[in-house]
Write a protein that binds this DNA or RNA. Structure first.
Lengths: 192, 192
DNA sequence: CTCTAATGTCTAGCGGTGCTAGGGTCGAAT
DNA sequence: ATTCGACCCTAGCACCGCTAGACATTAGAG
């Protein structure tokens, strides 16, 4: 029995190695550079090994996305936990979100831009994704204002942050003035 | 002289055919399906002909993006021109924007998601892109409110719309409730 | 301890991609 | 009529995601 357990353990280690390597490579050189050949070479196994862990490249992206979503939820909670006052808490959330996107562009893409084969906004949505939304909801639900559903407010606010994050990173928006844009969003959207 | 002119005319026609075909194919089957081989086949020329018009696939995407930006600017202006009152004008703009994105997903991607090799938010930005932003600015600048620069306000509002458009289309947001989200955005962000 | 069977991995290859070199054809100008 | 140059196509490169089948290596039975 112990032999089988050891093998499973080793397989799990290797699977984590694949995900970590894919993420690293994506952050270093972009997702285009994450080819199955290069990835296989970096983990020092042949290509087919990747397919014994994942159905294909898409699922690898999905695995990175789930890992990233967990981290993002933690980052948002950490940034908002110690802040007093709903207005400042929302501002802290917005900064933490945009900061995460700027510091982990490839991971952010995996979560929100690329096709990782994940279900979104459904009941079979993976837990990390639901939890990331929940982390936003916990903070943003407080400032939805009367007559506005917290979920709807959270979705809308989130969409605004997402727009800022993606347009900034894609060079569609000048990268300075991030802070005043955040201020504008928070001041106008959040009802304190 | 006339012969040369005719040839130039024919070249221009063919170039438009390439762009139109690429766009059509992208809207029908997604940008992934727009390969140089398929595109060449559809225009009934061989692949190298594409490269006598464009440096590569990226530039073809860029050409579709420019065409789309022009149309989008026109759509926004048309939707807002006949509307009275700044608040309703902004709401009309938002709906027109999201409607354009929903009706022309591939074109929207070409403009805002994909790499078409275009410069954004710089002085050498192509005119159609500048004009599309100007179309937004004309309407949104009115409702920036005191102490907020019209440009900054427009960028931020636009980012919100972009976030809604992309998240909705990527299945990250449930597609119903588009209207209440727009109402929320307009009511809170626009100062009338 | 040996042999068999199964597990795991690798090599090699398929059909596809974006892109390009080089040869050939056809029309225009002399 | 002939030359010459512009134009386009065939064929091929290196790479992609993915997989079939050969090959070790190891586990477990006798």
């Amino acid at each position: 029995m112990s032999v089988q357990e050891r093998k499973e353990r080793e397989r799990a280690v290797r699977e984590r190695l694949i995900v970590a390597t894919a993420r690293e490579l994506a952050e270093q050189q972009g997702w285009d550079a994450v080819t199955t050949r290069r990835l296989a070479e970096r983990i020092e196994y042949s290509q087919p090994v990747l397919y014994s862990h994942f159905r294909g490249k898409r699922e690898i992206i999905g695995a990175v996305a789930l890992q990233g979503a967990t981290e993002m939820a933690a980052a948002v909670r950490a940034a908002t936990a110690a802040v007093d006052g709903p207005r400042e808490r929302v501002a802290a959330l917005a900064r933490a979100y945009l900061d995460f996107a700027a510091r982990n562009p490839a991971v952010y893409d995996a979560i929100f831009q690329l096709d990782g084969g994940l279900a979104y906004a459904q009941e079979d949505t993976p837990e990390p994704l639901k939890d990331a939304f929940a982390a936003l909801l916990e903070c943003l639900g407080e400032v939805a204002g009367d007559g506005v559903a917290p979920g709807l407010f959270t979705e809308t606010f989130w969409a605004c942050l997402h727009g800022l994050a993606t347009l900034t990173r894609a060079g569609r928006l000048p990268p300075e003035y991030i802070e005043p844009r955040v201020e504008l969003l928070v001041d106008r959207l959040a009802v304190v």
